[in-house]
Design a protein around this nucleic acid. Sequence first.
DNA 1: CACCTATCGATAATTTTTTATCGATATAAA
DNA 2: TTTATATCGATAAAAAATTATCGATAGGTG
Lengths: 216, 216
Amino acid sequence: MEMVLEKQVKALSERTLRRLPRYIEILKRMKSEKIEFVSSNMIADELGLDSIQVRKDLAATGVIGKPKLGFAIDELIAGIKHTLNWDNQTDAFLVGAGSLGSAILGYKTFSDHGLNIIAAFENEPSKVGEIINHITVLPIEKLSDMAYRMKVHIGVITVPAGEAQKVADMMIEGGIKAIWNFAPVHLKVPDFVIVENAQLSHSLGVLTHKLAESLK
Amino acid sequence: MEMVLEKQVKALSERTLRRLPRYIEILKRMKSEKIEFVSSNMIADELGLDSIQVRKDLAATGVIGKPKLGFAIDELIAGIKHTLNWDNQTDAFLVGAGSLGSAILGYKTFSDHGLNIIAAFENEPSKVGEIINHITVLPIEKLSDMAYRMKVHIGVITVPAGEAQKVADMMIEGGIKAIWNFAPVHLKVPDFVIVENAQLSHSLGVLTHKLAESLK
DNA sequence: CACCTATCGATAATTTTTTATCGATATAAA
DNA sequence: TTTATATCGATAAAAAATTATCGATAGGTG
């Protein structure tokens, strides 16, 4: 009889992945209210979801619940964080210290989300040398080399549309494996590079469409 | 025989809605390259999608293509914009003139996306009176009244988590019908209010998870 | 002009995601 | 100690989304 050596990790759909941070969000609040066990129903009610869906999502994290009680909240938070790889930080470079870039550099909470931005880069000479939230802005020319030497794996792109592809190419040259792209451009990258798009316009489109529908 | 008075609008899934802005993005670039007709295959190739899916998405906008040629690019852009209601601007208020809020106020391109932010509000007295990208920061107390009097229908929330629900309540009191929420909180709102969440952490979770998977 | 072909758009098949059902079980109450 | 029940988690059903198939047609080609 074979031993199952590693915990069976079920495939995680992208939709499940997007719900997990929402679970963390309300679980943290519940924890602050001294709640120790939480049922799939409580979570579902809180977020307006279906409890079966919540159970399925949580099953994907490997955390198991107890009949009649639900899930131990600490264990659950830890499990979700582990699934998202938010329980250890990955170093990242950010390129584009404009207003959005600066805003992102200012977020201290990203360290809770597995991201540790250690340097920022800019094209614009006037911005080079600035220090934003303890992070120095360096000239873009240094990007590839530094990424390579420091084994940085995540790149955040907050430059204008026209420059984004060039920046992505530099990142890939420096060995970056995952790009968080805020520029409103579809990046062309090799298969082994992960791109996660975070364009605001995508979510804005849903809003403006639904609003127009609801008003007519 | 009955006349079909209004163009038959098929139901638009949220997933289709999220792809439409991406189509606009590359269509605009193609247009600048003097391309006049574009096929579903060209779009699909460009974005790494399936051409059938592209055709289905475009069908939902009501734009019709020509066999052998594809879609007239101008007509297509206009049709998608119309579907998203990006062909006319809706006034909006933004609350929370922190770094992210300021960044959003700075985006001039939102006017291309149907959004016209006409005022910003803040809790923090030191920020009140500031002018960011021609938009004055007003005291939060004025929010509900002004929204009501000016018939503003969209609210953008860029305050810290702890204040977001309170701000949402004020917005709803002022008659706001759609909320674009950047605060990492699940907002509780009546059924008739549309909430579109734009939390960065959701997309970051997908990235960190996939990166961890790919590295092991 | 007649044929060939790229493309559309409608319908069908497949896959994925969501929702439903139900037996098992841990805790609390009788 | 026995019983009742809330909840889990597995399996099944239903719904939604994606992908495949194919006839129709506009426009180019010989």
